[in-house]
Design a protein around this nucleic acid. Structure first.
Lengths: 272, 272
DNA sequence: GGCATAAGGTATGACAGAGAACCATTGCTT
DNA sequence: AAGCAATGGTTCTCTGTCATACCTTATGCC
């Protein structure tokens, strides 16, 4: 995730320069269709491994923290469990955890009922080298657009029908956002949206939303949170959930798009 | 992707049983919101590496083939290029290519202007062990839902405004589908949709669409292609592009959803 | 014909990561 | 107080992967 999109510069030109060994006719149609112009293979040929291996693990654990799935004070799964779930060795996992420890984000306690515990966010105006560099690498427009697509899609899918249990879960997540103090709001909000994504019936959608939302939260941490935005947000949440429960897919999508649009405008304004 | 959601059974219980070192009040709200019920960490804690390393490379090259980005008779990028783009060593890449060779999907020719060439699809009723196992592992509902979300979202985003060049590219991709023979239609169709995804302005969306479309094509290979479906499809393509060029986002999304719905119904019928 | 070039094919040494076993620490249970 | 169980901490070996260099083959150009 860190150093993507680098050192690709020379390849598309080389590919385009290749002599058309076979299918010259095809080649022409290709170019007309615009497929081959900017390297059509680029959508697929991303690096197989995004980093040093433990970097990827670090990324995923950071997602857990940024999504608030493991709130401050709580314990991460044990090293043995985590390493199994991430399919990496415990040694490699510990390398990632070491980074988080050094940054003061988690704390390890030994002994039974010990574990790796999440520490409260610190202002951390000191180093932040890691953090600031990450922010700079994020394609904000990509994030905002992709998020809107996933959210609206999830809302629409949910509106096509939930079981009683699922409806209750959604209502619960909405209610949880109501009484939230300001410092907790981001977390509950994230959980509500994540719930919607999970109830969409597409595991892939849920996983992708989790990823994009983690990035979004990171961006949101850069801008001030206003109570006014929060109240507006609340109303929109209620409207979305209501539309979903009413099986009104169009309304659900529309409301969700509006909701995302608000955040997007806020972020574009602050980061542009 | 293969063995997800296994051996997680004991973790949530253990977490819930942990003594609430901090925030006992929080804990209660959590459970009420339903967040902790089925392991909320599962959306994030997917395996860091999906396979033996070369398996991932194999997967991506298979995507190239399934998407028709490198049609039969054409040459893949050279081993040296491919290995650089995928960030794997040439040795590992060659392991992946070896598999494709053994399956009769590609052919390697030595010497200058040689390379790895894509062979025409064979009926391959022989082995197919690899293939059938993959199909069985696909979550069809996940694929169809996620696809619809991405397609509708991409259409909507494109309808919010394209440059002149982009419009031309889109029109070109649409035109390319018109004169296509039956055997080529799948490929041109894929390219059209892929173009729309790329023009959405979200690289992530484009990449995800490429992945889901590759899976979809694999599923589509299992069912017969009817000329009637094809004509209907053509009309819908035209309608979507028209809506996009008219900047009518709602219509574009709606048409695209309908279009995807058709394919989805077809697949659900055949595979259910 | 001969040479340069670009592609696939092969071999080797260094290192990261996996897997397993073990130690050290803590708190609950008896 | 003793023992047990679950956790973090450490060390070992072995396999897979990378990087690099070199060999072999086929084509175009002189």
């Amino acid at each position: 995730m860190v150093t993507r999109g680098r050192a690709h510069g020379t390849r598309p030109a080389a590919a385009a320069a290749g002599r058309a060994a076979d299918g010259a006719e095809e080649e022409a149609a290709e170019t007309a269709a615009g497929g081959a112009a900017a390297g059509p293979l680029d959508s697929v040929l991303r690096p197989v491994r995004a980093g040093n291996g433990f970097e990827e693990a670090l990324e995923q654990i950071l997602q857990l923290l940024r999504l608030g799935l493991v709130p401050p004070g709580e314990r991460l799964p044990s090293e043995r469990e985590l390493s199994q779930q991430l399919r990496i060795s415990r040694v490699t996992l510990r390398e990632a955890l070491k980074v988080l420890q050094d940054q003061g984000m988690v704390e390890s306690r030994r002994g039974r009922y010990g574990g790796t515990f999440v520490l409260p966010r610190t202002a951390s105006p000191d180093g932040t080298g890691e953090l600031r560099r990450r922010i700079a690498a994020v394609d904000v427009e990509d994030t905002l657009r992709f998020r809107e697509v996933l959210e609206a899609g999830a809302a629409g899918l949910c509106a096509e029908g939930l079981t009683g249990d699922e409806e209750a879960r959604l209502r619960g997540a909405l209610d949880a956002t109501r009484g939230a103090r300001l410092e907790d709001y981001r977390r509950r909000d994230t959980l509500l949206h994540l719930t919607l994504a999970e109830l969409s019936g597409s595991r892939t959608l849920a996983a992708q939303y989790a990823a994009v939302r983690a990035t979004l939260n990171e961006l949101l941490d850069c801008i001030p949170l206003l109570v006014r935005n929060l109240e507006h947000s609340q109303q929109q949440h209620a409207a979305v959930v209501e539309a979903v429960l009413d099986r009104d897919a169009d309304a659900a999508r529309e409301m969700m798009r509006e909701h995302c649009g608000g955040t997007a405008a806020l972020l574009r304004g602050f980061l542009a």
